[in-house]
């Protein structure tokens, strides 16, 4: 497992060797804060919370995380560096974890760039720091789950466009199951227990509790097990 560290470092600093990192960080910040200001009514709500900022996270992640994750493996496959990587003395699991953790750390950085917004809230009022902290925690966990899905789809193809599209569709499915509008449609067709069961597989259902300041072990376990499951399939897909 000591081999994870060089892979992690190469991948993480690799983002900053190309314009990808800067474009991504700027777009992420502008889009997330823009949504909070102009759609979420950050100021209009007149409340010292970050609710209007975080409420768009599941939707924002839907496009931005596949954009960050699509290149993880497909680029290595396209340029042939995958052959270099897998003839170095590392196991597939170490390579998968190293790259995943690097991308996750990068996304965490993007999320933490919104901290000045928390400062603004604190300046204007007296927010509940517990709620803000738990929401950040939930946001980072949810980003990891989205990324697990994207890393997996990226390992299936050498084409980044295909990787992006499949990631969005897969994440969309996981999102829709818990979206109230969609649940109502399902509820008119299927019995309640089935709709509840399905919505338990959704990002939204599990992220909601964090935004209310509740860190429920079952939500944490959901995100972690989704990551574990997709990364396991990722290893299988690469060893195929």
């Amino acid at each position: 497992m000591t081999q994870i560290s060089p892979i992690f470092k190469r991948e993480f600093f690799g983002y900053f060797r190309s314009p990808v990192a800067y474009v991504f960080l700027v777009v992420f910040s502008v889009a997330s804060i823009g949504l909070a200001f102009f759609v979420g009514g950050f100021f209009k709500a007149n409340q010292a919370t970050m609710q209007s900022y975080f409420t768009f996270y599941p939707w924002l992640f839907l496009f931005l995380i596949p954009a960050a994750g699509m290149r993880l493996w497909s680029e290595e496959k396209r340029t042939g560096t995958v052959e270099l990587l897998f003839t170095l003395p590392i196991t597939t699991l170490e390579a998968v974890l190293g790259k995943f953790l690097a991308a996750w750390a990068f996304l965490t950085l993007a999320i933490l760039l919104s901290l000045p917004l928390a400062g603004t809230v604190a300046y204007l009022g007296s927010p509940d720091w517990g709620v803000i902290a738990s929401t950040y925690f939930g946001g980072v966990l949810m980003a990891g789950s989205y990324l697990g899905v994207c890393s997996l789809t990226s390992a299936l193809t050498k084409n980044q466009v295909i990787s992006f599209v499949i990631s969005v569709v897969a994440c969309l499915a996981l999102l829709f199951l818990g979206w109230s509008v969609f649940s109502e449609v399902l509820g008119s067709i299927f019995p309640v227990w089935l709709v509840d069961l399905l919505s338990n597989f959704s990002f939204i259902t599990h992220f909601d509790a964090f935004t209310k300041g509740i860190i429920d072990p079952k939500d944490v376990v959901f995100f972690l097990s989704l990551m574990g499951f997709t990364l396991f399939l990722n290893v299988v897909a690469l060893e195929r």
């Binding site: 190469r10 690799g14 060797r17 190309s18 340029t79 042939g80 560096t81 052959e83 270099l84 003839t87 170095l88 003395p89 590392i90 196991t91």
Partner: peptide, 20 residues
């Protein structure tokens, strides 16, 4: 993994990370 540690391998067309 042990074999890979003992080998030096130059793959066809010498792939490397272009941005490094």
């Amino acid at each position: 993994v042990a074999v890979k540690g003992k080998l030096g391998y130059l793959p066809e067309s010498a792939p490397a990370y272009p941005e490094m």
